[in-house]
Design a protein around this nucleic acid. Structure first.
Lengths: 138, 138
DNA sequence: CCATGCGTATTAGTGTAGCAATACACCAGG
DNA sequence: CCTGGTGTATTGCTACACTAATACGCATGG
């Protein structure tokens, strides 16, 4: 499959290109549309397809590598890694998510969305993961 | 009450000061610790207390005003506004929240947090609002 | 009126984020 | 070896984010 086709950028969005790339790859991985072992499109391929500078793509890839989402397979490209075993205590992981959730709460309040509406919106996005339980999807 | 005491900044956090201020005020309003009709601490007061430049505080206040969270009461200060009547259709409001929720999902996945864990974390943050059950479709 | 409190327009300085052009190091496969 | 594929270190440039110092307009209330 050509994962390059799953990625797009909007140069006018205000969000830096390299960050758009990162966010999309992260999201693709979280939603399992990119699976461990697969390769990201090559820097040059993606750069040409999106009409951006290769170094911009490279920057995005490097940061994904730094964050442990992909590894560099020399001469081959960037390979998706399986989710890390997570050595961090649960509480600390929760803390890490909290600022983002606060932002969600403030924004939801401003948009006058009810708790239920937010939950209903978030649930499908979280649906696929829960990899601890071997139970499974539909 | 002195709402200035509820606000703090970390100059070393990497997050711009004016943005820290905005986020905190938004959060304080969403959690009802700052209520409509109350005043934000004056620009100079807050600036001195936090040891930052008054213009930095003013910038934060102006943006909050632009976003309709506070209004300027000339000669008195910045007054907290009640949540706007929301003229935007429900679906559009949902769309506005979606990118943020995607980010939550990707991060949660990376942290290996289960759907339930995320929900449990988010629920208390959303708890207070649901201010009126306008059984009103978009 | 004047004193004192509001917020801010203006201007300017500093840093750096973001992107790009180049050349380079490395590896797989023939 | 060579060829064509990988990612990237280096350098430089530009735009803008961020903060700050100053002076100003305006409202309140004695």
């Amino acid at each position: 499959m050509d994962s390059a086709l799953l990625i797009s950028v909007s140069p006018t969005s205000g969000v830096p290109i390299y960050r758009q790339l990162i966010d999309q790859v992260r999201s693709l991985i979280a939603s399992k549309r990119l699976q461990p072992g697969e390769f990201l499109p090559s820097v040059r391929t993606l750069a040409q397809r999106l009409q951006v500078n290769p170094m911009t793509v490279s920057k995005a890839y490097s940061l994904l590598q730094r964050d442990g989402l992909v590894e560099l397979a020399p001469g081959q490209g960037m390979r998706i890694l399986p989710p890390s075993p997570v050595k961090i205590p649960l509480n600390q992981r929760r803390q890490a998510l909290l600022p983002l959730l606060r932002q969600v709460a403030a924004t939801a309040y401003q948009l006058n969305l009810t708790q239920q509406q937010v939950m209903d919106l978030l649930a499908p996005l979280l649906e696929n993961f829960d990899r601890d339980s071997e139970a499974n999807p539909g």
